[in-house]
Design a protein around this nucleic acid. Structure first.
Lengths: 217, 217
DNA sequence: CGGACATTGCAACTTTGAGTTGCAATCACT
DNA sequence: AGTGATTGCAACTCAAAGTTGCAATGTCCG
């Protein structure tokens, strides 16, 4: 008997009655609320009201606020998209930064960052938020930089995490502190800054350096 | 409301009774509490208990939590230190970043950032937090960069705020997301990254660019 | 010194909002 | 149709914020 599920009977022994829609609605609203008012101000009665359901029903499924939020975040971060790489470092970094920016500006991302910053305690929640945060950009970025470094495209003494976190920090500052949009233009500016440096046009100095090293050997 | 201080006697018309010490204690504790539990979880009864005073007394002076926090922040950001500049851009930027990092890691700074990120609404509070944030580094940094740009030390198309906010964002990420210390080493790394760029050693490409621009037209 | 004024503390009260429980209504699936 | 599970509803408990009247204490000034 084809049992992809848990029960042997072919008919749905795991009935997804109105319950499934219920769960989805509540988790959705929880995320929204999380982004809007933050973790601390989020309350189950509020979520219930906004979701158009009764508090009691929520309390019965998720005993506490923490559990509810955990499940909401869990459900929200299932879709980890692979990061397509073109081989051009600048292009790839911009694409990556766009992914991160998109995440930061989404309800989920906002919620996650708020938890990360405000919930210094609550190790369980922090862990989950960290997971969600890391999930948005996985390990791929590090591979990206390792390759670039192997190609000699970036300096060997540049720390990959410093570079990535600087970009991420710039985006966070843009979105949350300045409360501005992280446009493609802005993202490109940041990436270019970090890649080429602010002093990129001091050609004389660079040439000098080159000649010196060329003549030295 | 302002106390009726207009007395006929020329002596201390602004009496500082036990009230002054009271105010200072409460504001101090408020700041501490703000950094410890954040704005949302902060409650006047808690502050009262921690300050060893009665809630009622606090309620009478500051009607709401918002007012109390506003005054606490106001009192905390009086000392704006001038930024000494040496003329060397890298040195000055590192010094500046250290000031910012120091602020971010202080109770006041933590509180301010938490408010900035969590209190997207509350325009009044946000405004004050912004003021406190900006206060940590005033306009001096912009002058710094303007001078460097005038000297041709940095590229003319580099946006000053992008550069500064990228550094600030990197520090915020370090302190709040990674929850690590912003050491001098790390700060120098970030500043160097932003100034020189990750691709600083790709001499061939830079030379190529130079030759092209030299031979072209 | 002493009396008026202001400030703080104290205790009891009201209010608000989270969380709980028993029961009726509803839906799903046999 | 009937049975079991799920949701809604209404009334409750409980904790903590905020309020008020009054007593106690300190300060100022004649």
């Amino acid at each position: 008997m084809p049992a992809p599920k848990k029960k042997s009977s072919p008919h749905a022994t795991e009935p997804k009655p109105r319950g499934e829609a219920f769960v989805q609605t509540v988790l959705q609203v929880t995320l929204q609320q999380l982004a809007d008012v933050g973790f601390e101000k989020l309350s189950i009665p509020d979520v219930a009201a906004r979701a158009g359901v009764n508090r009691t029903s929520i309390y019965r499924r998720w005993r506490t606020k923490e559990v509810l939020v955990r499940h909401a975040l869990d459900a929200a971060m299932d879709h980890s998209e692979g990061l397509a790489t073109t081989g051009d470092l600048r292009t790839d970094l911009i694409a990556l930064a766009q992914t991160v920016a998109h995440f930061l500006q989404s309800p989920t991302g906002t919620a996650v960052v708020r938890i990360l910053l405000a919930e210094g305690s609550n190790p369980e929640l922090r862990l989950l938020a960290n997971k969600a945060y890391g999930n948005a950009s996985d390990r791929a970025p590090f591979a990206l930089l390792a390759q670039a470094k192997a190609r000699g495209e970036i300096a060997p003494d540049v720390d990959a995490s410093t570079l990535l976190f600087t970009i991420a920090g710039a985006l966070m500052h843009r979105v949350f502190v300045e409360q501005g949009r992280a446009t493609v233009t802005y993202i490109a500016q940041v990436v270019d800054l970090v890649l080429k440096g602010a002093t990129r046009y001091a050609k004389e100095e660079l040439l000098e350096t080159h000649y010196r090293s060329a003549h030295a050997s």
